[in-house]
């Protein structure tokens, strides 16, 4: 069952068109990524789902409700982490959680969240004294305090160090395992690749691709590269003629073959038939990073 249905969503700020005919759906229990470069409209799209902004045209349904008209019925069932927000400077972590728990009809135990998000030692620390990572974890905890069915997390690991990011990913997986649908706004491809079941790529206010990370990589037409050092002379023209191969480069005795699909099998097959032994074999599969760059590349 679709938890979020967005169809033909458009939004302009004054004369600047931010979203144009955006459509996507999110299924219950999945982690859905919205990715794209800065200014692509990710945050606006997600704010239309949260009911913080009104769509100019198009329909948005979250848990079957209109996020703006039915805000009073929807808000208790969703959790929101905003990209840029702060709390009262002198408000302590424990107090903030206790306060926000009181704003929801069916909250979680805030002490539990304090432990879960590694904030137990900061319970009495005022917001202004928290590190970037601690603030981020507090905001994620606040997004979960109402026992949401859907959690919207906007650029959640921006302020975190690498270890903090990995820990956060683990917790996001736990949230998902608890049955919460997660919408993740991100511009980190590794994050989307590691966490998301499906993702939509936004660029210039339009969706340019939707699918699983693997599908996005395949659709972008970027495959991978195979590099090696042949121990006997090799005719690179024959490599270039193999199915799937898109380019061959030879430099200082090292050959780099790039291609899509099963090109690597073709290359190794040819080498075997010719009886050419290679050294320094390296295969690099293109990541979502490459796919993302290919999908959002502007030919200008």
């Amino acid at each position: 069952m679709a938890v979020i249905e967005v169809a033909g969503l458009s939004k302009a700020y004054g004369r600047r068109q931010v979203l144009e005919g955006v459509s996507f759906g999110v299924e219950r229990g999945e982690v859905f990524g919205l990715l794209g470069p800065n200014g692509a409209g990710k945050t606006t799209a997600v704010e239309c789902c949260e009911g913080l902004r009104r769509a100019d045209t198009g329909t948005v349904r979250v848990l079957g409700l209109d996020p703006v008209k039915d805000a009073h019925r929807l808000r208790p069932r969703i959790g929101i982490q905003l990209q840029q927000a702060q709390l009262q400077g002198a408000l302590r972590v424990g107090e903030a959680l206790e306060l926000y728990a009181a704003l929801y009809p069916n909250p979680r135990d805030w002490r539990e969240l304090l432990d879960e998000w590694g904030l137990a030692d900061q319970r009495r620390t005022p917001f202004d004294k928290l590190s970037g990572g601690q603030r981020q974890r507090l905001f994620i905890a606040l997004a979960l305090i109402g026992n949401p069915e859907v959690a919207f997390l906007d650029e959640l690991t921006t302020a975190l160090d690498p270890q903090g990011r990995r820990d956060t990913w683990e917790l996001i997986r736990r949230i998902r395992d608890d049955g919460v649908t997660v919408v993740l706004v991100s511009h980190f491809m590794d994050e989307v690749e590691a966490l998301c079941d499906r993702a939509a790529v936004l660029d210039g206010g339009r969706i340019v691709a939707t699918g699983t990370p693997a599908e996005l990589i395949a659709r972008s037409g970027t495959g991978g590269t195979l590099g090696f050092r042949p121990t006997a002379p090799l005719d690179t023209a024959r490599l270039a003629a193999l199915p799937g191969v898109t380019g061959v480069e030879e430099r200082d005795g090292r050959v780099e073959v790039s291609g899509v699909g099963d090109f690597a099998d073709e290359v190794t097959g040819l080498l075997a038939r010719e009886g050419i032994v290679v050294t320094g074999l390296r295969i690099r599969e293109h990541s979502l990073d490459d796919a993302y760059l290919a999908l959002t590349r502007h030919d200008s």
Binding site: E50, H72, L82, A85, Q86, Y100, L103, Y104, G146
Partner: peptide, 12 residues
């Protein structure tokens, strides 16, 4: 600071 915005994202 966005305190009001954060609050407006809650049910109240």
């Amino acid at each position: 600071r966005g305190v009001l915005r954060r609050m407006s994202a809650s049910p109240v």
